[in-house]
Amino acid sequence: MKIKSLVISAATVALASTAYIGLSVAFDDDSHDWGDYQVEDRRSGYTYRSAETRALQDDEFENPGMVGVDHGAELWNIAEGSEGKACADCHGDASESMAKVGATYPKFNAASSKPINVEQRINLCRVENMGAEPFKYESGEMLNMTAFVKNQSLGEPVNVVIDGEMAPFFEKGKEFYYERRGQLDMACSHCHEDNEGNMIRADHLSQGQINGFPTYRFKWQKLGSVHRRFRGCNKNIRATPYKYGSDEYVNLELYLTWRGRGLPIETPAVRN
């Protein structure tokens, strides 16, 4: 098992460097049929990556994020906490109980009167139903469990509720998206809406769709949450990031999920 993952990471390092070279080849063709990865003008980050990177994501045995999904599957069956329960004790077979669930988050949580994402739903379950310690946000356990849950919705079109009690949070997320921040004084929209498809030095700017998180990034050499990606983006423009799981980032996650409505869940996606 360990040897296998070592081989995989060596392969991904090699691929990461070749992906750079092949960069401008694969995607400048607007007429290309991206199948499920494009809905109207909404394009998954998948369509901006090289053929090698896409092939790696598509191969469930070679996809380096699948190691985390497999670990999540193990955690699903392990009893923890004062109640001595595992996820499986209440939810049974995840392929049935969790099918489509990952495509509908963030969702409104009545107890806290605000939206929560999959990570937060998992921790609510752990604390309230299992009597267990919550996972730390960006811990391996949290990422792997989240990836496992979302992977049950692989291919399922993203479909998130934004009206009713969700509306004010959606509006806040939208505001965040268009608000300039940091010393570079940029909003998300400047790169991912106004300049989507353009090269910014060696990087191909995508629409910033989030339907593949937790995502395996070559840069990280592991799975990472969408909030980690937000923090990285914020720091790139020299802005103070928000905390993992903060209301600001959950609202942004909600808004971005909506921007990718209809795109398939790709967890674990593979990206640069």
């Binding site: 608000e179 921040r181 940091g182 010393q183 914020n234 020299r238 802005a239 103070t240």
Partner: peptide, 9 residues
């Protein structure tokens, strides 16, 4: 003049 600038900048 900018919003939420990282402390070191």
């Amino acid at each position: 003049k900018m919003h939420r600038v990282l402390k070191k900048f």
